[in-house]
């Protein structure tokens, strides 16, 4: 188990997204909550937060009922103890540029801007769940130097468990695959710490929920290892 609150000890005084010098406007909200601002007003304005109706199972925006994709998942795996997915943001062009810089260029601290919202979502939807970040393959870890899901999990400020492991994958980056390829490919997760997850509710942490194939596969593996139920918290719902 690891906690990592150290991510934010640097990168102060500038917008975590556009690196402009921060000049926060004094609104009543800022004044009374005394919440440290990490993004500039301009970037805050452009955040594509998910508001309004969303699918209760996968948080797809614009679906007040369970969406067709989730119904298909139900049919495929009727015995699953899937709770739901919760995401913070849409995937629009701003978020895409953000992700490129954060994940592919490797600006890990940018995620810290959303720690507050992630903690809020965790307390609201998943209180008491054990966070389990989605792992990277060993090669990708060496190339990228950090696991983006772990960076997000570290922000929850409760100990997370790296209970999953992932073998080398043959198919290449998921972000370069089609929906069909993603749904059919097998990521090959294994549970390395079954004694910690057995009997517990686990919360899978990942950066983006696109087709749901990754988190559903991880959920299946964790449930097979004895987890009571599985849910997921992702930053982005594409």
């Amino acid at each position: 188990m690891t906690t990592d609150g150290a991510l934010l000890s640097f990168a102060r005084g500038r917008c975590l997204s556009c690196r402009e010098q921060l000049q926060t406007s004094w609104t009543y909200n800022n004044l009374f909550t005394w919440k440290k601002s990490l993004l500039c007003d301009n970037c805050t304005e452009q955040l594509p937060a998910i508001t309004g109706a969303a699918c209760p199972e996968c948080w797809a925006p614009g679906h007040p009922e369970v969406c067709p994709d989730c119904l298909r998942w139900r049919r495929q795996n009727s015995a699953g103890r899937w709770v739901k997915n919760v995401s913070l943001f849409h995937y629009d062009s701003w978020m895409q540029a953000w992700t490129t810089r954060w994940k592919f260029r490797g600006d890990a601290v940018m995620a810290a801007a959303f720690y507050h919202d992630l903690r809020h979502a965790y307390r609201k939807h998943f209180h008491g769940f054990v966070p389990v970040p989605i792992p990277l393959t060993p090669e990708r870890t060496l190339e990228r130097r950090f696991n983006q899901a772990e960076v997000l999990a570290a922000g929850l400020n409760i100990p997370y468990v790296s209970a999953l492991e992932r073998a080398t994958e043959a198919a290449g980056k998921q972000s370069k695959q089609t929906k069909r390829e993603r749904l059919q490919s097998v990521r090959g997760f294994t549970v390395s710490l079954p004694e910690i997850v057995s009997g517990r509710n686990v919360l899978i942490i990942d950066d983006i929920y696109t087709t749901g194939a990754t988190v559903r596969e991880a959920a299946g593996v964790l449930e097979a290892a004895g987890a009571a139920s599985a849910a997921s918290l992702t930053l982005i719902r594409a």
Partner: peptide
């Protein structure tokens, strides 16, 4: 200092800048 970041790194360091 505002333009450095740190994270847990594959090199084994808890705070790699």
């Amino acid at each position: 200092p505002g333009l450095f970041g740190a994270h847990t790194c594959a090199c084994g360091s808890e705070r790699c800048f």
